[in-house]
Nucleic acid binder design. Structure first.
Length: 573
RNA sequence: GCGCCCGUAGCUCAAUGGAUAGAGCAACGGCCUUCUAAGCCGUUGGUUGCAGGUUCGAUUCCUGUCGGGCGCGCCA
């Protein structure tokens, strides 16, 4: 609808321009006014152009108004305020959306494919513990964005980058080994910075069942000083030497167990990945060497203090960054450079990374490396999801994977259900710090707005259930006379239905799923008001048919919108 | 200290550079012999942290300042 009005206005302005009666912006800016009396759409062209033309805004607006040709779309156009043009759309034009929705069904709201391939990488949490509620926000946001962009015409692939190569995984292995030794009746000192969660015990038990006592070794690593990190590194090195090839079994057991847990958790949450991309595979394929060679060829690598450095300051970063350590082991950053190069080589039109806000300082170096390798950094979009600050019993709750003191995503899902959790997460825009009240989120109360939207859907289904119970029937939707829909609530609903496609498009382009969540709440609100104000089944026949047809369209849009957010549309509550 | 994000009603949050800044929850008053009351209708609630600037017009853009979060590893 907006597009139709905009083109009508644009044609008018073009006409005036050729007659020399208008000079101004060629792009037509059309907005939806907040206030009822200001029409359905408003344009500020007269305000914007008046100064340059040296005329009064209202007078110019009046001239434009007079030049707008009559159209069945428009009931009237008013000049208001300082010089706004307010368009009032005719009821008939609004009603056209109903057959369109019913004709397209589940695919209503899908924009034509735009041929663009997008890679969306999100969550990518280290597999050294279960996902917690902080990861849940990234998961809900990323998956909703993927669905949203799919609906907006993109071809989207979801990817999870598995950090299976680093020191953190060695620390998990060491932690599992310590618990394993305990389980074998040979307790050893638990690493000071090890992972203390219960899941480590579980993995250790499974390891004992599978490997018996074959991994028992004396805990006699030479330990000196009081540097916790150094002690841990020494123990890891010692354990690797003591276990030999069996270290791979230990490491692999921890990794596999955590990955399986994360994968199952996400799938139950409605998030399915197209690819789980292993960091280790980059080491093994030589991709890291290749990426570093590219940087070197570009003159952006140098040696200092026995390490290899990327000249990140050349690309706007605060300092240069190490890519190969003194001990010849590449850093995580080196893997990431190779990973991004590989993403570019796969030929996507656009790359999106969703990161936790704590990684924002990492952006300049990654973009810098990409630029240095001759790739266009503009094609890499990094979206940050702010932390959720957790409150439990009115107190801030600490979240630490190390200590094992955290609320898992699985626990939250079990308490509130997937629907409530997903909706709750995407109701806040991602860059907003979010206060997550666990007691509120876990209480299955009507304070959770997802029920409000789902109830609207269930209510409509229920009307049709009642209809059948009363022995009434509904004719083909196309046969009803929608012209009978003249009540205020009906026009409000029709207007809202006309907005849906626009909401999808804007939410996708701005990467803001919360826009859709708010829209659905608004649509649900209009439905509830309609429900309370008008009778459907007891209305006279032609009117009843028209109203039921409208309800079908509303139900369809609610269902489609909820689907994009990964939330179910229940038939009954 | 430097950098990034945020600051809007009692609480949690919206608001595409536009007109009188909106919802939900909380509080208060109404609405179930008729399609689900997880609902509806109404009332109360604001110096958009503060001070400047740009603009016909600023919650939105710019500068400064205060407050909160995060980052500034040869961790990932």
């Amino acid at each position: 609808m907006k597009r139709k009005i905009a083109s009508l206005l644009k044609d008018t302005l073009d006409g005036l321009s050729t007659k020399g009666e208008f000079r101004g912006p060629t792009e037509v800016d059309l907005t939806r006014p907040r206030q009822d009396g200001h029409g359905d759409f408003a344009s500020n062209v007269a305000l914007a152009a008046a100064k340059a033309m040296g005329v009064a805004p209202r007078a110019l607006a009046e001239r434009i108004r007079a030049a707008i040709p009559p159209s069945r779309l428009i009931e009237r156009v008013e000049v208001a305020g300082p010089g706004f043009l307010n368009f009032f759309v005719s009821a008939g034009a609004w009603r056209d959306i109903v057959p369109e929705i019913l004709g397209q069904g589940d695919t209503f709201g899908y924009l034509p494919a735009n041929g663009k391939r997008v890679l969306l990488e999100f969550v990518s949490a280290n597999p050294n513990g279960p996902l917690h509620v902080g990861h849940g926000r990234g998961a809900a946001y990323g998956d909703s964005l993927a669905r949203l962009m799919t609906s907006a015409g993109y071809t989207v692939e979801r990817e999870y980058y598995v950090n299976d190569a680093g020191r953190q995984m060695d620390i998990l292995a060491l932690s599992v080994w310590a618990r394993y030794m305990e389980a074998c009746g040979q307790p050893v000192a638990f690493p000071a910075n090890g992972y203390r969660g219960d899941y480590v015990h579980d993995i250790a038990r499974h390891l004992k069942e599978a490997a018996g006592d074959s991994l028992i070794r004396p805990d006699d690593a030479p330990v000196t000083g009081d540097d916790i990190e150094a002690i841990t590194d020494a123990r890891i090195a010692h354990l690797k030497a003591a276990l030999g090839p069996l270290y791979g079994t230990l490491h692999g057991t921890g990794l596999k167990a955590m990955l399986a847990d994360i994968r199952e958790d996400l799938e139950e949450f409605g998030v399915r990945y197209d690819r789980w991309y292993s960091e280790r595979s980059l080491v093994e394929s030589g991709a890291i060497k290749r990426a570093l060679a590219l940087l070197a060829a570009h003159g952006d690598l140098y040696e200092k203090d026995g390490a290899h450095w990327f000249r990140a300051t050349r690309y706007g970063d605060e300092k240069d960054r190490v890519v190969v350590r003194e001990n010849a082991v590449p850093t995580y950053f080196a893997s990431d450079i190779a990973y991004h190069l590989e993403k570019y080589e796969r030929g996507y039109d656009h790359l999106i990374n969703i990161w936790g806000a704590d990684h924002h300082g990492y952006i300049p170096r990654v973009k810098g490396a990409v630029t240095a390798m001759g790739r266009d950094p503009a094609r890499l979009e990094i979206l940050l999801v702010q932390f959720a600050i957790l409150y439990r019993g009115g107190q801030r709750a600490q979240m630490s994977t190390r200590s094992g003191d955290f609320v898992t995503l699985r626990e939250l899902r079990k308490e509130v259900g997937n629907d409530a959790a997903r909706f709750f997460y995407v109701l806040r825009k991602s860059e907003q710090h979010m206060d997550f009240d666990l007691d509120l989120a876990k209480s299955r109360s009507n304070e959770n707005p997802v029920f409000y939207v789902q109830y609207a859907h269930a209510r409509i289904v229920s009307v049709f259930r009642q209809m059948r119970e009363r022995g009434q029937t509904m004719a083909e939707p196309g046969a009803s006379d929608l012209g009978l829909l003249t009540a205020g609530e009906e026009l409000a609903l029709l207007r809202a239905l006309n907005q849906y496609t626009q909401v999808i498009e804007e939410a996708a382009e701005t990467r803001e799923p919360h826009q859709l969540a708010y829209y659905l709440r608004e649509l649900a609100s209009l439905l509830h008001a309609y429900y309370n104000a008008q009778a459907f089944l007891s209305a006279e026949d032609p009117l009843r048919q028209a109203r039921l047809t409208l309800l079908l369209a509303v139900r369809q849009v609610l269902a489609n919108g909820l689907m994009v957010l990964g939330v179910s549309a229940p038939e009954a509550m």
